[in-house]
């Protein structure tokens, strides 16, 4: 059991003294998952809005696909992206396999249904007459949607948190499309897997603590933003 405590002690030393490699991996994680979340939220909110408001055939199927996507296995996403992005694959011309762009794409695909699913739930909890009332107030179409999103922001921010959590904690697809190249595509999750495999528990624990702290800080900021608009229970 001693190696666990040694691991924690060494992790704290690494963190306090600021190991360059550790911080570079952390920064890369934040950038990759941040972009993936941004793209996923942008597209996911649009998809969620279409699924809620749309009157098209296959709307039920779209909702089912979004819900299924919320449990999308990262390794499956990674596998298909490798096939698509491989040099002789349909998207091989993009030449982004084993780069952070491919990792953003992979994490974005995983996070998108999460953002869309939360958007659907958030919008569906609003009174259906809200949209009619906003039009009655003289709002243009884009103003209606902005105000609806503002009304649904508690649920939407939960969606942002969920999407970021799905992106930053994902490891399988990032390993497959990023290949865990030191200084290039290594992020906190893939580095933790590598260090654990090599028996360097202190570094793995340090990376895990940073990952947890990162998730906590991001969610803290989002939670504060979310709860500013929340009505306390009576």
């Amino acid at each position: 059991m001693g190696f666990i405590w040694d691991g924690f002690r060494n992790a704290i030393v690494l963190l306090v003294h600021g190991d360059r490699e550790v911080w570079s991996v952390t920064a890369r994680s934040l950038v990759v998952s941040g972009w993936a979340t941004a793209v996923a939220v942008l597209l996911g909110v649009a998809l969620g809005m279409a699924a809620v408001r749309g009157r098209f055939r296959g709307r039920g199927l779209l909702l089912a696909l979004i819900n299924t996507g919320m449990g999308l296995p990262p390794v499956v996403v990674g596998l298909f992206l490798v096939i698509l992005l491989a040099r002789n694959g349909p998207l091989g011309g993009l030449d982004i396999l084993y780069t952070t762009r491919a990792m953003i794409l992979a994490q974005g695909v995983i996070a998108l249904p999460v953002a869309a699913g939360f958007t659907v739930t958030a919008l569906q909890t609003l009174d259906p007459l809200t949209e009619v009332q906003l039009r009655a107030l003289g709002a243009a179409r884009w103003q209606v949607w902005l105000l609806l999103l503002r009304e649904a922001r508690l649920g939407l921010l939960a969606g942002v948190m969920g999407a970021f959590g799905a992106a930053v904690s994902e490891v399988g697809a990032s390993l497959q499309v990023g290949a865990n190249i030191p200084g290039q595509t290594r992020v906190l999750t893939t580095a933790t897997v590598l260090e654990t495999g090599m028996g360097r528990y202190d570094v793995a624990i340090a990376l895990s603590l940073i990952l947890l702290a990162l998730i906590f800080v991001v969610n803290l900021v989002l939670t504060i933003a979310q709860q500013r608009g929340a009505a306390p229970w009576p």
Binding site: L129, T130, Q133, L147, R150, E151, G229
Partner: peptide, 9 residues
């Protein structure tokens, strides 16, 4: 004014 007040946050 619809049946419910529908005030925004």
């Amino acid at each position: 004014v619809l049946q419910r007040p529908l005030l925004l946050r």
